[in-house]
Amino acid sequence: MNKILETINLTMDFGGLRAIDGLDLHVNEGEIVALIGPNGAGKTTFFNCITGISPPTKGEIFLTTRRKDRDKIDGLKPNYITKKGMARTFQNIRLFPNMTALENIMVGQHCRTSSRLIGAIFRNAFTVNEEKLVVENSFHILNRFGLGPYTNEYAKNLPYGAQKRLEIARAMATRPFLLLLDEPAAGLNNRETAELNVMIKSIRDEDKVSILLIEHDMKLVMSISDRIVVLNYGRKIADASPEDIKSDPAVITAYLGEEFVA
């Protein structure tokens, strides 16, 4: 199998606090991997490290693109990493609140387009053409994620569930091959979570995008993931299939405490 994301001995310190401790983690092509662990385990910090938002203290990160180039990406700025094909969502929604839903998607396509200042002023054929494609494409993406009715609404005025979907749609607009989702089901009701389940699968199967997701909703995690990685205090304590994770004593200890281990 092909490891599209691989971290080796990844470590992140905040002053005296070691939020991630020598983490080796990988995602294979076509996989849905769940990253779970108690609050404060370092999951979000892991996302921030690999996406370049807060560069790791130590360790290496490799990304194997669709063209099969294995690139070392630690130390790169977030925008380069996104351009290479890894996109993410945030635990606390970070949309562009005063832009419309459609514009949010259009911004997502920024790194896949190239018209410049001069082109925008003179509206040359290239720019006009590109802009047209961006708009069409954005409508397509919005509709695909069921956001059609909100096209021209400001992102801040969307209902919570729609905002969460818009964030995923925006990340997909950057055309990634690996999508990182930080607690996509948080705050969603049962019906919305079920829809999310279908949506994540369709992203993997139809768009051929691999997925790494952080999630606390165990039902979702168990039903959707091919593999689960468990973090505790920044260390990997388990990395196995959902069935094996359920019965792993280390995991049960981490979540429930010593006395629950059968």
Binding site: P78, A87, F90, R94, M99, E103, E131
Partner: peptide
């Protein structure tokens, strides 16, 4: 013209949220 162009949208996005903006591949 700039306001509603690729670069103009990037400006507004930057104003709205720098981190999300970078995560969208904007320099």
């Amino acid at each position: 013209r700039l306001q509603h162009s690729r670069i103009g949208r990037a400006w507004v996005a930057l104003r709205e949220d720098e981190i999300a903006c970078q995560a969208m591949g904007i320099d």
